[in-house]
Design a protein around this nucleic acid. Structure first.
Lengths: 193, 193
DNA sequence: TCAAAAGTGTTACTGGTACACCCATGA
DNA sequence: TCATGGGTGTACCAGTAACACTTTTGA
């Protein structure tokens, strides 16, 4: 019997207020378990991508049977700050809505992404310093496919005690500038939505 | 490189108002992917256990590296009605709190079990016909390690429109007999707790 | 001075929690 | 008739949803 095991590693980040996925020459990042026997081969990733603080989370294991061969694909995701990665000519980010919507690995990843990104610890990784509430709101609206009321959105985050007002304002291209906030230091993980 | 893949199959049911796990000669049900190349080998299960309507759900894939060998264990669970299984001398059910609390497969299974059993479709599989509210309440109290108020518990299920009153009463050993209810036919899955 | 975008406060509703008293049964 | 366990209704609180007007900026 012939068994092949590979990992698919989907790393998400936010660029200009939009969720992006890291690709390897426009393909999903696939790592075959060959020389190094390890399910998640961090070594391999660090050798090939200049990335810091990777914390992969397992989503699902897919199996495919072909003749006398069993292929297992273990899917992992992570959500990182784009400052923690240095891209090269091989790796690039692509916007979520420009990805193949039929791909099972992508779809499953997004399912997991939704469960991760509603934690205050995760969103703080993406916005470690200052941010503007309308941007955060838009991310959750895109991700969860819902609309929120500006006032209720702000009220909720204040009530949950996860943001603090920095008494500064942003510089917007158009319209009134927004106030700057910061996510408080994480004491306990909270589910925001 | 040597790769071994096995499944651990944890099947839960409710007997006398308590959650039980199916064991094979007092061990977890493990199936090695050997002759048949398939991740979930239903054939194998059906050959060895007289069981109906199995619907396994993947929980997690564990990996263990030993010397030059990689062992993958894919964990599945299901929650079935005990009428759908005929036990033999090999297989038996054991109560949840009499299981090894250190076992990673058992712990992960219970984690998944909690997420499944709060769906009205799952609890209806366990109680397809009539039941008594205090019994259901006790199951959720045990499972989620919470206490519910009798009145609020009933109100919640009525509000969620998942139960119907059968206008019949049970025969209790002691105390006032309880009313009989039935879970309504499932149109859409609802999260109860 | 107009359009665009963000700030704010109030009210109504809804779901959840807490709680006390009454009722049916078996011993 | 008493202990046990189950049924019911009400009042309060908190979280959510709906909503309109004002403010700041750039063009």
């Amino acid at each position: 019997m012939d068994i092949r095991v590979k990992n698919v590693i989907n790393i998400f980040t936010i660029i200009d207020g939009k969720i992006h996925l890291l690709l390897n020459k426009n393909n999903l990042i696939e790592i075959e378990c060959l020389d190094e026997i390890n399910l998640v081969n961090n070594e391999y990733i660090y050798k090939n991508i200049d990335i810091k603080e990777l914390n992969l989370k397992q989503c699902y294991t897919f199996s495919k049977k072909e003749e006398n061969k069993l292929e297992l694909t273990v899917l992992y995701i992570d959500i990182i700050n784009k400052d923690n990665i240095k891209l090269n000519d091989k790796f690039n980010f692509r916007e979520l809505d420009k990805l193949d919507k039929e791909n099972i690995y992508i779809n499953k990843s997004i399912e997991c992404l939704k469960k991760e990104l509603i934690l205050n610890s995760t969103i703080k990784k993406l916005y470690p310093k200052e941010f503007v509430l309308p941007e955060i709101q838009k991310i959750y609206e895109d991700l969860l496919d819902k609309k929120y009321d500006r006032r209720n959105f702000r009220k909720k985050l204040i009530k949950l005690d996860v943001i603090e007002d920095l008494d500064k304002i942003s510089s917007n291209k158009t319209g009134r500038p927004a106030k700057l906030y910061r996510f408080k230091e994480i004491k306990e993980d909270k589910v925001l939505f």
